[in-house]
Every structure is written in C-alpha cells, then in structure tokens.
Design a protein around this nucleic acid. Structure first.
Lengths: 189, 189
DNA sequence: TTAATTCTAGACAGATCTGTCTAATTTGGT
DNA sequence: ACCAAATTAGACAGATCTGTCTAGAATTAA
C-alpha cells in the first residue's frame, strides 16, 4: 500500500478513536512508520490530512452500507437491512469500519463547528448522501415523492439517534430498537 | 458571580463551540479574566474543569427542558412540547443554552470515547436522565410499562437524530420534522 | 549503470500546552 | 484596623504541537 494511503488509514483510525485535536501528527507518523517529510510531501497540512481521512471514511462507509442494502430487495427489505447493518457495526462485527466509537462524521463536526469549514462540509455531504440512499429505497414503497421524503427522513433520524444512543449510553441494542420502531412505521402500510 | 462559576461558564462556552481538546487553559483564563492559580485552587486539573462544565451543562439543559415540558399538560402535550423546545434551541432562541453547536454531550463523547472515563459517564448519565423524563410522560398515555418504554425510546431517537441533522447538515427544521413523525406515532392511538 | 524521484531519520524553530511556583495585592470577616 | 483567605500577574519548567530543513538511503525507470 502506498505511503499516502497508509497515512490516511492510520490517521483515520486514531482520529476516530480519540478525536482529531487529541491526536498529533507525530503519533500518526510513529504508528504508521512513515517519515515526517513524506507526510508533508503528500499533504500540505494536518487539516488537509483530516480532509482526506474524512473523505476516505465517507467512501468506505457508504460503500459498505450500500452493498449491505443492495443485498436485499429494493424498498422495504433494504431499508430494514440498514438497521441490521448498523447493528453489526455497533457490535464490532464490521472490521472495515473499525471498533465502534460512534459516527466519525458526527464526532468530527463536534470539533469543527463552523459549517463553512471544508471538513464540516464533507461530513454534511456524507449525511446527505446517506439520506439520498434511503430516499431512493423509500420511493420504491411510497406513492408520492413527499411521502418518500418523509419516510426517509424518519428512518434517517431513527438511525442517527440509534448511533448516538449506542455510543453515548453504550446501548448495544439501539439499532434493533430503532428497527422495531421503523418496522411499525412501514408495515401497516 | 464566584470565580469558580465564571471559569465553568467560560470553559463551557468555549468547549461547546470549539471542542474540548481545541481549547487551552490559557484561553479560558484570558476570556474569563481569572488568574491561573485561581483555576488550580478550584480544580485539580483541566479534566476536572471539563467534568464541572459537563455537570453544569447537564443541570442547565435538563432544568430548561423539564420546565418547558412542565408548562404543558403531562403526557402527549408535554412530549410534543419537547420538539418545540429543541426547535427553539436549534434556532438560537434559548440564550441560556448558547448558540447551537449540536449536543455538547454527544460532541464530548466524540472526544472521550472510553465509556469508563468520568467525563463520558457524565454524558451518558445526562442522556439517561432525559430518557427517564420522556418515559415519565409516556407512562401518562400508555397502558403498560413496556409500551411506555418503547414510546419514550422512539421519541428519544427522533430527538437525538434531529439534533444531529440540525448540526451536521444545518437543517434548522429538523425538530419540526421529527415532531411530525412523533405526532403520527402518538395521535392514532 | 545512471539519473530522477521518493523516502527516511532526525534536528530544529517557534508556538502552545498543562501545571507549579513566587510574591504582591485584594477581599472579607471580626 | 487587623488578620486570614482568596486572587492576581507572570515567570518558569517540561512536554508537545505543527511545520521546515538537511543529508543520505532506497527505490524506480530509462
């Protein structure tokens, strides 16, 4: 694996576990076994490495979620599969996502509150992308665009809420509880 | 106001806006106009100040929310009022909560991922406390303990999801959308 | 083989971090 | 007015932060 990718992987792992401002460049270098100059050959600053880490997480996470949902019939089943997917995530059964420390994008926005900051913007873009994925499947089982939007929104909120509950309170069944609520919202229709 | 409280207020404001590890003790001292020795007379370390800030936020936030909910009849109306309350919060109409930068407890857990850390524990305790508040009102309109638990859980997830959506995506209507979902969950019953 | 590129190791600068210490000043109770 | 406690200002230590620089080693391509 190229040096650039090694740096991104290591940085993401450390940032995700401890937060971004708690991790210094030197620690990333030491754990990745890369020289300092190499880092600054590939990235012009720490912030630039942070951006790359967020972008990478977006790619990995979205691909994983989309693949999981596509493994089931589009529409209701795919939407329900989402909750099973994040349930596996919460319980550390998805190695590619690392050990669960909440949502990297939510955590990162807690450290970059300015909505105009490039890092914050990338986090927002990720969430919007996931929302669009839900909406696409919601359209399969809804009779109008508005209705699909509302359903996708409800499921999105439940999912985000479950992430928070799982991380902050350590509730490992949060995803299943969210799924139960979601199930009641879709089936009687 | 006592020096101790000045320090807590200033620290909370800065921590909430920028994250905890991004703020140094010296900045807290400068903005609060307090000497360094005074800080270390009241707190044995920065972490101890962080704990105090989290505890204070818990007190202020919970009291605010409980008061808002108690301004309406217990049960369904109080639960609906919660969404109006956080809607005001998202739109910066609650001065005592500061400008909205997401949930301080969620953000803080992003920087203190170890669930055994005192700071993380306090954040978890806050969320649990809010959940119990919801459950108390849910019991007013449910026929069983289990049903109340499930309702409180659903509303809790919607609320947390709305906080995330409002902060990360800048969706200022997130609370109203969550309220709409919640409303559909309660009224037909 | 040679030439160009990439990487390494680490010194270094300058800023900032937490926390300690001192000594003078202010405050509050009696 | 007096004494004790609290606060101030700031120097200081030692660690750590980001980012630059240099010089040599490794890698890659022609």
């Amino acid at each position: 694996m190229g040096r650039r990718q090694v740096l991104i992987d290591t940085a993401l792992r450390l940032f995700y576990e401890h937060g971004i401002h708690a991790i210094g460049i030197n620690q990333v270098l030491q754990e990745s076994g890369v020289a300092k100059q190499t880092l600054y050959n590939h990235f012009e600053s720490k912030d630039s490495l942070v951006e790359a880490a967020v972008e990478h997480r977006d790619k990995v996470f979205f691909q994983w979620l989309e693949t999981r949902m596509n493994s089931r019939p589009a529409g209701r089943e795919a939407l329900m599969e989402m909750f099973d997917a994040v349930h596996d995530w919460f319980n550390n059964r998805v190695p590619t996502l690392h050990r669960f420390y909440g949502c990297f994008f939510i955590n990162t926005c807690g450290e970059y509150s300015d909505p105009e900051h490039p890092v914050h913007k990338r986090c927002a873009a990720h969430k919007t992308r996931v929302f669009e994925l839900l909406k696409r499947h919601a359209l399969e089982i809804c009779t109008s665009e508005t209705e699909a939007e509302e359903l996708a929104n409800a499921l999105f909120l439940l999912k985000e809420g479950a992430i928070v509950k799982a991380h902050v309170e350590g509730d490992l069944d949060a995803a299943l509880k969210a799924k139960a609520v979601a199930s009641r919202m879709i089936s009687p229709h």
